[in-house]
Design a protein around this nucleic acid. Structure first.
Lengths: 188, 188
DNA sequence: ACGCTGATGTCACCTGGTGCCATCACCTTA
DNA sequence: TAAGGTGATGGCACCAGGTGACATCAGCGT
């Protein structure tokens, strides 16, 4: 056994999630999180750039998987078809973490600061997807629109999914939302 | 002449915009902004809740006008027709402040923190528009989708408008973007 | 002359976040 | 086995954003 307990980063994450849930995000101090994990404030900031980021580990993975899905889609796919493929990839990821999604979502919903961070993660995701769409030959405006529309659908579907007592699969909800968007755009 | 110089809030805004532009947002201190305006740090925080907010006065007005446009649209309007009406209202506002839009946009683009703030303003705007759409009888999901799509179009159009050397009117750009979105949704 | 009001200043304080250096178990190498 | 390097961590000082409590003081009405 080494000098240090292993998994310091994971311990910090668990401590933060627990404390944010118990006392609330604003009322929790970084020093308290660190103490609960058996570490110090200074070490917390070696693992996470700030107090918010501890809730967002894994967002790069989601981004990678959605981009990969766009890259792997058949050449015949339309813009919305590519978005659908990306949403299918997101569905897999969300189902994997369903257990933590609810508590985490409630914490984020309780804090303005955390919502800001979530929104910029979505913007980063949209930018990455737009890049992948341009790489497939879509025009700049089309790529930007399709990518942002993808994150819009993802968020609207996510909010229904995370609160759904029937635990309907994310994929089904996202497809319904996508279909509704199509209808909105084709009507009038 | 009164004991205090008038327009303290405006002076703070001007000082902040100038300093953020000259030295950069992160390198500027609230105390410096206040000093330039002939005030103190404490007074800055009486007018603005934080260092970011000083760049976002007027966002409530934009929100009000876009919501009002939705409420005032003819009863026959479709969901995207209502979004178009809101975008027309935004166009008027943007043209009014075109002079400041470029510098302000560059400052925001230079800072992660400011982008976060801008994104949550957009989210607030989308929530307000969704409420107005529901009040006109649209379903929850449709309202949420249409409202967020509206802010998406607004942002994509804004980025083209603010950098456009030809000074094409925002309204024309937004209509083109909206048309492109329709095409994306109807293809494939 | 008196007291009220409201914008501002002053001061003390907390917390997020960072730079710098010390510590110390483990590993390598001679 | 002893010497020295390595890497995760602790400790400390410090800065800036942000807030609460209280003092100040011109103008106003009475």
């Amino acid at each position: 056994m080494g000098r240090w307990q292993p998994d310091a980063q994971v311990r910090l994450q668990e401590a933060a999630l627990a404390l944010y849930g118990e006392r609330g995000y604003e009322e929790t101090t970084v020093a308290e999180i660190a103490e609960r994990a058996g570490l110090t404030k200074r070490t917390f900031f070696r693992y996470f750039t700030d107090k918010r980021e501890v809730l967002f580990r894994g967002s790069e993975l989601l981004e990678q998987q959605m981009v990969a899905a766009i890259e792997a889609a058949p050449a015949s796919a339309s813009a919305l078809g590519l978005i659908g493929a990306a949403l299918d990839a997101a569905a897999i990821r969300f189902e994997e973490v369903r257990e933590f999604a609810g508590p985490r979502h409630r914490i984020i919903a309780s804090s303005h600061e955390l919502q800001e961070r979530e929104l910029i993660k979505a913007a980063s995701l949209a930018a990455a997807m737009a890049g992948a769409l341009r790489a497939r030959g879509l025009g700049d405006t089309t790529a930007a629109l399709a990518a942002r529309t993808g994150t819009t659908i993802m968020h609207v579907a996510f909010e229904q999914w995370v609160e759904d007592p029937d635990q309907t699969p994310f994929q089904r909800i996202a497809r319904d939302v996508l279909a509704q968007l199509r209808e909105i755009a084709s009507t009038g």
